[in-house]
Each structure stands twice: as structure tokens, then as C-alpha cells.
Amino acid sequence: MNRRNFLILTSSTMAAISMPLASSPLHWETLAAVQTHLFPSDVDSPGAKEINATGYLHFVLTNDPLEREFIEKGIIYLDKIGKYTAGKPFLDLSHKEREQLLRRFEMGTNGKRWIRKMLQYILEALLTDPIYGGNPKEIGWKWLEHQAGFPRPPINKRYHLL
């Protein structure tokens, strides 16, 4: 596929894909792999796995149907492009191939918006209060020597309950 066709595909077709959303499970395994690629674990620092980025994303999408739709369309489409260009689903790609695919995806307006959102939710999982499911045992705060404010939100005063 040449660059032009790819851009057309990523910027316009993505919005047009429609899926039966209510019944289809999100592609959680693939989403988790994307998160790990965007925010890898290291010996001296937590990655997507340690900060529970996937669990946190699940919390966010459960409370926001429109966002769930956007993330779902994105992951389906990313996987589709991977199969089209490399002949394999995202999960079977090498690190280098994943990087290439995501960089290509970033070239489209919606693709960039989708990756930006994935990164945003990773940073939220890293640095928001552990009560939301990310940042377990304040692992993100500790890594970045961050001092939280007080009083901290109790379980019954999380933002979606206010």
C-alpha cells in the first residue's frame, strides 16, 4: 500500500467502520499489547503492566460509551491495517513491526487522536489516585517522586459519583 492510500484509509475510513458495539467484547488483549508498547516496563521503572493501565482503561470506558466506541473502532482498525501491511494481527508482530505500524497509524488525523488518547489514559493510570484502579500502591507517584494533595478522594466520592 502506498502512503497516499494509507492516509486516505486512516483518515476517512476509520470513522465509517460500524460495529455492533453493545455485544462485541473490546479487543482487550490487543489493547493491552498496544499499551505495553507505548509504555514498556523497565528494571527501574513501571510500565503499562505495573500501573494497571488496562484495568484503568476498562474503568474509563465503562463510564463513557462514546469513548468506548472510539477506542474500539481504533483498535479494530489498527489491527486491520497490521494484517493488511504485515500480514499478521498486532499480537503477532515484532517490536519493530509494532513501532512501524503505530507510526503509520499516527500519520492519519484519527489515528493520531486515537494514540494520543491511549497515551493520555496511560498517564492517567500512572498518576491519578489509586482509587481509580491505576497507580497501584502509588507506584507511579513513587517513581516520579510526586507528592499528592489531601484530602484524597474516598471510594464513594469518585468523580463519576459526584
Binding site: T128, P151, Y159
Partner: peptide
């Protein structure tokens, strides 16, 4: 109802 919760104050 006020807590130091970045999600509540500023992200949602």
C-alpha cells in the same frame, strides 16, 4: 465533596 482528585477537578 472537594478532594485533591485531578480527574474530578480538571480532566472530566
Amino acid at each position: 465533596d472537594f478532594f485533591k482528585d485531578e480527574l474530578a477537578c480538571c480532566l472530566r
